[in-house]
């Protein structure tokens, strides 16, 4: 039964390779975008850490900056 499911009347290689390519493309795209996000966020955190207290206070007044800093774990 499993063999029939995989073989699909001789079309298995076409069907499985199509689904595998789709899954592979999804995974690659997700990983690339996630890496870009983490890189940019880490850059922000290190730049923020390098600010003097006066500038950091100005930056902290913006909601978006607070939100970026608070989301250091998740996306």
């Amino acid at each position: 039964m499993i063999n029939d499911f995989l073989y699909m009347n001789g079309y298995g290689s076409y069907v499985w390779s199509s689904f595998a390519f789709t899954f592979f493309s999804f995974s690659v795209l997700y990983i690339i975008i996630k890496i870009q996000y983490i890189k940019e966020r880490n850059k922000f955190i290190s730049k923020f850490g390098a600010l003097n207290s006066e500038k950091a206070q100005v930056a902290r007044n913006q909601n978006i900056n607070k939100e970026i800093l608070s989301r250091s774990q998740s996306i």
């Binding site: 999804f26 795209l29 997700y30 975008i33 996630k34 870009q36 996000y37 940019e40 966020r41 850059k43 922000f44 730049k47 923020f48 600010l51 500038k55 100005v58 930056a59 978006i64 900056n65 970026i68 996306i75």
Partner: peptide
């Protein structure tokens, strides 16, 4: 849903990029 997910992640990255430039200008 997957394209929405990728869009949101990319859009957030772009906004942080803008904010990074904003920090440089402070």
């Amino acid at each position: 849903l997957f394209s929405l997910l990728i869009f949101l992640m990319k859009y957030n990255t772009e906004l942080i990029k803008i904010k990074n430039k904003g920090l440089d200008r402070l």
